[in-house]
Simulated scan of single mutants.
Amino acid sequence: MNRRSFLVAGGAAVAGSVLPSPLQAAAAFPLELGKLPYAPEALEPYIDAQTMTIHHDKHHAAYVTNLNKALDAAKVGGKDALELIKDLSALPTDSQTAVRNNGGGHVNHTLFWSWMAPAGSVAKGPDGKLGAAIQSTFSSVDDFKKLFGEAATKRFGSGWAWLVVKADGKLAVTSTPNQDNPWMKGIVPDGDLGTPILGLDVWEHAYYLKYQNKRPDYITAWWNVVNWAEVAKGYAAAAA
C-alpha cells in the first residue's frame, strides 16, 4: 500500500461519513500537512496564535512525517486506514505503535481543526437534531458540557475527550490517552468505541502557553470556538 492509498481510502473510511473532506484534503501523495481552515490568530482570545502555530506547524507536522515513515516501513498491502486504525493487529508488530501514535495523531488533529471556528462565526450551541439528541441523552446542553469537561479534566496526562455516536446511534462522552481515538478496537475499551463527532485535545501543547496548568480554564474557553455546524454534520452522518 502506498501512502496515498492509506489516507485516501482511510480519508473516507476513517472519518466514516463523518468529516471526509478534511481527511481527504490531507491525503495527497506523499502525505502532507494540510492548512488550517482559518488564520492562526482567528481563535483568539480563546486560543492564541502562537499556540495554534506551534500545535499545527510543529506537532501535527511531526505526526505526518513520522506516519509517512511508518507506512513505508509497514508495507501492509491492501488494508485501508479504517482497518488499520480499528485493528492494529493487521500491521506488522514492529509497526503497530508508530501507526497507532502517528496515524491517530494525524487523524485526530485533522478533525480537531475542523471542529473549531472563529467565535461569532458559528452558532453558540447545538441545535436541530444534534441539539435534541444532546438534550435527550444528557438532560441539557449544560449537563453535557459538564460531563465532557469532567472527562477532559480528569484525563491523566495527555489525551482527548470525545463526543461519540455509538453503534446503536446513541451519544456518549468518552476519553482516550495519548493519540488514541474511539475507532481503535482492542485499544480502547469496547464500551468506549464509537464514531467521534467532537473531540478536545488536552495535551499540554494545546493550551499551556496561554493557560499554563489551568486545564479547566482552557476547556471552558474552548466552547466559544466549537464549530457546531460541523459537529451536526458528523452526527447526521454517523446516526443515519
Rank of each mutant, 00 (worst) to 15 (best):
W203I: 01
Q212I: 01
G186N: 10
A206L: 02
P182H: 01
P196W: 05
N181C: 15
D192M: 11
P189W: 10
W183K: 00
I219V: 13
E204F: 10
P189E: 12
P196K: 01
I187T: 13
G186M: 07
Y218V: 01
L193E: 03
W223H: 06
L209T: 02
T195F: 05
P182E: 07
N181Q: 14
T220V: 13
D201E: 02
P182R: 00
K214E: 11
Q212G: 10
W183M: 12
I219Q: 05
D192H: 12
G186V: 10
T220S: 14
I197V: 10
K185P: 00
H205E: 14
Y211R: 01
R215M: 04
I197D: 03
I197C: 03
P182F: 02
L193A: 04
R215L: 15
T195Y: 08
K214V: 02
P216N: 06
W183E: 03
W183F: 12
V188I: 11
V188E: 11
K210C: 03
T220C: 01
N181T: 01
L209Q: 10
E204N: 14
P189H: 11
Y207L: 01
W223M: 09
Y207A: 04
Y207S: 03
P182Y: 00
L193N: 02
D190K: 10
V202A: 11
M184S: 10
Y211I: 00
P196Y: 05
V202G: 08
H205Q: 07
I219R: 04
I219D: 01
L209G: 10
Y208H: 08
N181I: 04
A206S: 15
L200T: 03
P196E: 09
D192Y: 02
L209K: 11
E204W: 07
Y218G: 05
P182S: 12
K210H: 10
G191W: 00
Q212W: 09
I187R: 06
Y211W: 04
W203P: 00
T195H: 07
G199E: 12
P189N: 11
G194N: 06
G186Q: 06
T195D: 08
H205K: 10
K214T: 05
W223R: 00
Y208V: 13
Q212K: 11
W183D: 06
A206M: 07
Y211K: 02
R215D: 00
Y207M: 01
G199Y: 00
W222L: 14
I219K: 04
G186K: 03
P189K: 13
G194A: 09
W222A: 13
L198P: 07
W222S: 15
Y207G: 03
M184E: 15
Q212A: 12
T195P: 02
H205R: 10
L209A: 08
L193Q: 05
K214N: 11
Y208C: 01
G194S: 09
L200K: 02
W222C: 03
W223D: 08
V188S: 07
L193G: 00
P182D: 08
Y218N: 03
P189S: 15
A206F: 04
K210G: 04
L200G: 02
V202H: 11
V188D: 03
P216E: 04
W223G: 04
L209M: 08
H205Y: 14
I197Q: 02
